[in-house]
């Protein structure tokens, strides 16, 4: 039972896990407290960016008519995002946005996947900063696309003034403004963040709960096995959430772009 001693000896990782567990110790300078400039999280984001760039460059280095395995994989990811998200949601105009959607999808999928990858074990997206910045990127993109397609005045008019009689417009315009320009980026960011945060928290609760029960008394000790079995089951659930959230983020971005460049209906 050295694992138990290991975990419980650290003190901070005692049973009820808290938000503190999301702030990993600093790497550079090594082990410094209250220094969050370069932690495991930062390292993971850089690793994710590096993996994506290298993978896509390498798989497209020598494109062949009969694709190699790597090229096939890269092409099927791109093809999936282009056909099943961009073209499905936006139509032919969506092909222009497919590269951004693919980048977004791959980046979110990979950084989310770090949550259940051994030795990484936490997703950068469980810190609000990363989902927030991704959401801001998508926000700027759909407003830019709308303004470029319609012109500023028509875009604002399209997205703020619903087809309704004039006397209920004062009731509706603030709602439209809020839901289009304030709630959208917020909900994009929070949905991804909350899912990854809750997922990591859930795994922590069941893993540490097992250790806590093991060390509490002889009667509860066997139950800890159940707790760890739950951890394994929840890891599979977590995998489902990871893929789903990456997909949902991309689909919603596509749907916002579609709404921005759609003709008035």
């Amino acid at each position: 039972m050295f694992g138990q001693a290991n975990v419980l000896a650290q003190g901070e990782a005692a049973f009820p896990p808290s938000v503190e567990d999301f702030y990993l110790p600093s790497i550079l300078p090594w082990g410094a407290h209250d220094s969050y400039w370069f932690t495991k999280i930062t390292a993971m984001v850089w690793i994710a960016v590096g993996i994506l760039i290298i993978f896509f460059l390498a798989s497209y280095r020598k494109p062949q008519l009969v694709p190699t395995k790597k090229q096939w994989f890269a092409e099927s990811i791109y093809g999936f995002v282009r056909n099943n998200i961009a073209v499905d949601m936006i139509g032919h105009a969506g092909v222009r946005f497919a590269p951004y959607f693919t980048t977004l999808f791959c980046f979110i999928l990979l950084t989310n996947f770090f949550a259940i990858l051994p030795f990484f074990q936490i997703s950068p997206n469980s810190h609000i900063a990363f989902p927030a910045f991704l959401a801001v990127t998508s926000y700027v993109l759909f407003i830019y696309a709308g303004i470029k397609h319609h012109g500023a005045v028509k875009f604002i008019k399209n997205s703020l003034i619903p087809p309704a009689p004039w006397y209920i417009l004062p009731l509706l315009i603030p709602i439209e403004f809020f839901s289009t320009f304030l709630v959208r980026p917020f909900s994009l960011a929070v949905r991804l963040f909350a899912n990854m945060f809750a997922g990591h928290m859930l795994l922590l609760v069941f893993t540490l709960g097992g250790f806590a029960m093991l060390s509490s008394n002889a009667w509860l000790a066997p139950v800890s096995v159940l707790s760890w079995v739950m951890t394994i089951a929840l890891t599979f659930l977590e995998f489902l959430v990871i893929v789903l959230q990456a997909y949902v983020f991309t689909v919603l971005t596509a749907s916002y772009v579609q709404g921005a460049i759609a003709e008035e209906h």
């Binding site: 499905d88 949601m89 139509g91 009731l171 603030p174 709602i175 809020f178 839901s179 709630v183 959208r184 909900s187 949902v248 689909v251 919603l252 596509a254 749907s255 916002y256 579609q258 709404g259």
Partner: peptide
């Protein structure tokens, strides 16, 4: 064709925003 997921979130978003704002 906007897909179902986008429309669902839009609908829920309108309801919640309307309620919260007013």
């Amino acid at each position: 064709v906007p897909s179902g997921a986008g429309q669902g979130w839009t609908a829920l978003g309108y309801l919640i925003t309307g309620m919260v704002f007013w």
